[in-house]
């Protein structure tokens, strides 16, 4: 049924987001929480290109991913120059600042959101086609990231993360690697944004704020930082768990905050009891004895 397709598509999108976020903060060790903003940039770019400029949807989605990638490079270049930790504040500022801009511009639909986004596949081949599309992209993303992480480049990432100074001493350029990782992760988030936009056909800035960052962080941390399947488990769990909670027959006034409480408590418990997440990263990724570095 329609409803089931919607859920599967959302899960596929969150898998892409969680996996790419894991790549950036887990494998890359980059301290950024602005992943949703690249999701937003991809969604808006794709939607506007398709709706207002008549670009064919599939190209628009790809373009959305590319624009998100370029934006992330700009952010990385400006914030990574000083030190990696600066990326955190820079990323928060970039996320909120970009959302402010979107809210203030007329042609993005402003704070009220962008509607009438052209659809793709659903009208011609039916929603099942879109589901297949989304799931295919999700699977490709996971496999691609896994392939990179387990290959020679992955070893280099690990080395950079473990000891940047030694890494530089060996002649490798940490900056270039960090920017590449960030760009790839953000580009994938942008692709996911385009896929979202052309199915749900309505996007609003409020969907991409700090709460969304927090949700993605939860998926990655609870799922398992630096494992391939961890983010997938995290993404699916985060979609399924709210449903499970509603089976306990609670009055709505209690249900809402309680849902939030259970969720955040879950993250905290995981962070202290099992910081490696549901699916622990394999030994090679654990680096030095530090838990989540």
């Amino acid at each position: 049924m329609e409803y089931f397709y919607t859920v599967v598509i959302l899960m596929a999108l969150y898998v892409i987001l969680a996996a790419s976020f894991n790549f950036v903060i887990g494998y890359g060790g980059l301290v950024s929480i602005a992943h949703p903003v690249f999701y937003a940039i991809g969604a808006y770019a794709s939607a506007l290109l398709a709706r207002d400029m008549g670009v064919p949807v599939i190209l628009a989605i790809l373009a959305g991913g590319l624009i998100a990638l370029l934006a992330s490079v700009a952010l990385a270049l400006s914030s990574l120059r000083v030190s990696g930790d600066y990326l955190l504040i820079g990323s928060i500022g970039f996320q909120l600042g970009t959302l402010e801009v979107i809210k203030n511009l007329h042609w993005t639909g402003g704070a009220g959101g962008l509607s009438n986004i052209p659809s793709f596949l659903t009208q011609t081949l039916g929603p099942q086609a879109y589901v297949a599309f989304a799931v295919a992209v999700a699977m490709c993303t996971v496999l691609l990231l896994r392939w990179i992480a387990h290959g020679p480049y992955g070893r280099a990432m690990s080395a950079m993360r473990d000891d940047e100074l030694a890494f530089a001493a060996l002649g490798r350029n940490a900056m270039v690697m960090k920017i590449t990782i960030f760009a790839l992760g953000s580009g994938l988030a942008g692709l996911a944004g385009g896929i979202y936009a052309h199915y749900f056909r309505f996007i609003a800035p409020g969907q991409f704020d700090l709460l969304q960052s927090s949700a993605l962080l939860t998926m990655v941390v609870v799922g398992g930082l630096r494992s391939t399947w961890g983010p997938i488990v995290g993404a699916i769990a985060l979609e399924a768990l709210p449903q499970a909670i509603t089976f306990i027959n609670l009055p709505p006034s209690v249900l809402g905050p309680l849902q939030g409480i259970l969720f955040t408590s879950l993250v905290l418990i995981f962070m202290f009891v099992r910081p490696q997440g549901l699916i622990a990263a394999s030994a090679r990724w654990r680096g030095r004895q530090e838990e989540a570095r």
Partner: peptide, 10 residues
């Protein structure tokens, strides 16, 4: 446990 700044931030 020498958690990273990212971890503490989360």
């Amino acid at each position: 446990r020498r958690a990273s700044s990212m971890f503490v931030f989360i």
